[in-house]
Amino acid sequence: MTAKEFCKQVLPLQDKIFRLAKKFFNSVDDADDAVQEVFHKLWTRKEDIDSFKSLEAFALIVTRNHCLDTIKAKKHHVTQLNLEHDIADSTSQQKNFENKDELVTVFKLLNELPELQRTIFHLRDVEGLEFDDIAEILSMNPVTVRVNLSRARKFIREKMIAIQNYEYKRD
């Protein structure tokens, strides 16, 4: 495989890798660095690509492992302030929604989830992957994936409702 052919194959995955990495780091710069790191790792392991169901699955496995390793090594810590900035920036550019605070709240709730549940939620709800593909990426049972996804979604719903009730009472 030449460098050109390789680029043609992996570049369409750059946004997926970026988004998954951003879930871990909550930082655009770190996510972009991760994209480069992951591409490079894929290049050095390009002989292994065929042994996976799809290049996408392989790329996301490498991405997750890279992010987990980096966080472990650096004890990566992201302040909540950055999160709010990020949300506020992206909302202001788009349609004017009623309440940015609500988005920030959900964002924080997502970050409260355990890593596995958050990753499953991301791969399903944001990337729209099937359970079988998620199961392959996380090397686990599709049923377990579904159970964890349900748990994550319910956690967010319950917390959201609790927060809304609290604010309603206060008003």
Binding site: Q94, F97, N99, E102, L103, V106, F107, V126
Partner: peptide, 10 residues
């Protein structure tokens, strides 16, 4: 807002 956020992240 959960679905708004997902739409945004997509």
């Amino acid at each position: 807002s959960l679905f708004w956020l997902i739409e945004r992240q997509k």
